[in-house]
Amino acid sequence: MREKIFAIRAAVEEKLTTATTMEQLEELRVAYLGKKGELTSLLRGMGALSAEERPIMGQLVNEVRALLESEIQTRSEQLKKEQMQAQLQNEKIDVTMPGTRQTVGNRHPLTIALDEIKDLFISMGFSIAEGPEIETDYYNFEALNLPPNHPARDTQDTFYITDNILLRTQTSPMQVRVMEKQEPPIRVIAPGRVFRADEVDATHSPVFHQIEGLVVDKGITMGDLKGTLDIFAKKMFGPECKTRFRPHHFPFTEPSAEMDVSCFSCGGKGCRVCKDEGWIEVLGCGMVHPKVLQNCNIDPEVYSGFAFGMGLERIVMTRYGVTDLRLFFENDIRFLNQFKGVEK
């Protein structure tokens, strides 16, 4: 009896090492430990044993049974692991193959820059004004201290529709519209499309974009103009950016200035981007001309204000090194999509 038990144990342990599938393992279990299995049969033949031997053998059979069950279990877990390994190996893919993409588009580079500028001024308490692209002579010129036959009108080659209706040549008419509608305090930017009869080339376009700014309140000074635009420059071109204000002339501001920023490419040492000047001209600005305030029924003895205007294309071109203005309106997807990463 004892020999038989040990023979079964040896046989099972022997077969365990060669079993390579879960099915074989199950067969092995059924064959030896199942209801009709060999070890189970041994228990049934226990009646032939003596009374002293019976419990001893019984215990032995149970011990062997427990041992074999545990060994089968161990082997089973091992096999499962191997199978998982095999499966994983089998499921291997080429992870360097290109991903499947849900392509997203992006905003136009001019919109991207404009959005940034809008956010920046909104954070300084500005709101955004709008106005028509087809304008009257009054708003585009006359109210801005550019009476008929003013020589400065010639520098803005104007598209006319009638003698009195034109395509706005600047975003400044929106200043007048805001001042007519709203009492000070006023703090707005007015971005938009403007039109000038310039033949198309790398640096000229009959359609381009400007951003106008206007602040009117009691006690606004030229120092406020400098301070506000200085913050704009630092936020737009980096904290190291320095500004320089040069006297200039615009009919609708007095005193007037042009603002240069230190070249963000070379930091002011002089390079290709700034044409070795160290400075890049960014915008025109000044204190709102008293005549313009008067035209809008705002008393210049009580209120003062500043205004500024900049070309959007110019900012985007210098910032990203775009050398041909035509690219902005050609809408070649290979150009547009280059700006995907800079969209905020």
């Binding site: 909104i122 308490g125 703090r187 400098k226 301070g227």
Partner: peptide, 15 residues
């Protein structure tokens, strides 16, 4: 000319 920031509030700020 010293750079300063205008005081005063604009209740219409934003979009």
């Amino acid at each position: 000319i010293p750079s300063t920031l205008s005081s005063g509030t604009n209740l219409n700020a934003g979009k």
